[in-house]
Amino acid sequence: MYPIIIDTDPGVDDAMAIAFALAHPEIELVGLTTVFGNVPVARATRNALALAERFGVPGLPVAQGAKFPLVQSPLPHPEFVHGADGLGNVNYDPPTAQAVAQSAAEFIIEQANRLNGELTVVAIGPLTNLALALKLDPELPGKLRSLVIMGGTVDEPGNVSPVAEANFLSDPHAADVVLGADWPVVVVGLDVTHKIILTDSNLMQLRDKAGETGKLLWDASRFYVNYYSNTGAASGHDEAGCCMHDAAAVAYVVAPELFTCISGPARVISEGVGAGQLTINRKGYTYLLKHWEERPAAKVCMDLEVEKVRSLFLDTIIQHKVR
């Protein structure tokens, strides 16, 4: 069993990741922590609470986290990608539950201590909460089973600049701090998530076979798929679809053998034209510039078995849906 916290900024693809985690029989979702990103953090918290209720787990703890990046000014929220409400402008009813009193960072630390080395954190938004948790408890990296991050890109072009992925650009200083700590960490970025497309046929399967969960994901995905269709970001297929970003990070937790990784000290460029760029010394070279020295190695996914990962996602939600 894999106890996990999902650190999230829901987000249509975040909703897919949460549904997948709740449905997978080997995952125990112990809570959600929220962060600014796709939407303001208050909306992210509302969405997380609403998704928990809609997915049939109204008592799931949700802890609200960071409102702003560590250093830089906040970027605009991408309403054109996820809708103004973050969930495709479907306008779900407000949740009845409230967030817990703890901050996201405090909740992560508490659960890491309680689970005594068994907790995995899956971070699918900006990494501000992890950086704040690290500041509160510098020993946190040694208390986790693993940290899986959806963010960054190495060889694949970025989705918010030619070199940057959205989560890392939203708080590059936090991303660099987190990758500088000695976690058992793996980065699942655009190098793999741009290869795995959920087509409308796949999403129809969820709508028709995965109960209320599938219907919610179908409805929320309409705005998101339209964005991908208009931009060509999921091109190369005969039908409309979207990239399976955040759920791929959850898939890594239960099926790491389906991914191919490189490893090396990693930095995230914090400022300037390269802000948000993930850089990794994958060859172990000694460079003139020493910024990658005395940094722990991070694993970064570069390839995956596309059909197996996509089937894992679809089959899990269809066969083990919560409701």
Rank of each mutant, 00 (worst) to 15 (best):
D137A: 13
S263N: 10
E26W: 07
P172G: 07
A101D: 14
N116C: 13
L51K: 04
V30P: 02
A84E: 08
R54T: 14
D246N: 14
H194M: 10
I197H: 06
P78C: 02
A104H: 04
N230H: 13
V273A: 09
P3K: 09
L136K: 14
H24G: 06
E305F: 06
L288F: 15
I317D: 04
L115Q: 05
E156Y: 10
P69E: 01
A97P: 04
E165Y: 05
P10C: 08
P157W: 02
D155P: 06
A21P: 03
D315A: 12
L144K: 07
S161K: 09
A175H: 01
G284T: 01
Y224M: 10
A23G: 06
K299R: 15
S311W: 09
P184G: 05
A123H: 00
V39K: 02
L87I: 13
I196M: 08
Y228D: 14
E307N: 12
C261A: 11
S270C: 10
V185W: 01
L216W: 00
C243R: 14
A251P: 13
D171H: 02
C242Y: 06
D238Q: 12
E26V: 09
R145C: 06
R207E: 12
S221N: 10
D14Y: 05
I5T: 03
P296G: 03
G117W: 08
S235R: 12
M1K: 13
P141G: 11
V12N: 03
P157D: 10
P3G: 08
L203S: 05
I197F: 04
P157L: 11
T120F: 06
T260Y: 06
H245E: 07
A101T: 11
E26R: 15
G180H: 01
S263A: 11
C242M: 15
G151V: 05
K209L: 07
S311V: 03
T45R: 07
P95V: 10
L87A: 08
V57S: 11
P265G: 07
S235N: 13
D200V: 14
G117M: 12
A166N: 07
H82Q: 04
A104V: 03
L190S: 02
R282F: 05
K308S: 12
L190A: 03
N47D: 04
G65Y: 09
A240C: 11
Y2K: 15
G284I: 01
A249S: 12
V122N: 04
P172H: 01
N116D: 15
A266R: 00
M204R: 15
F68E: 14
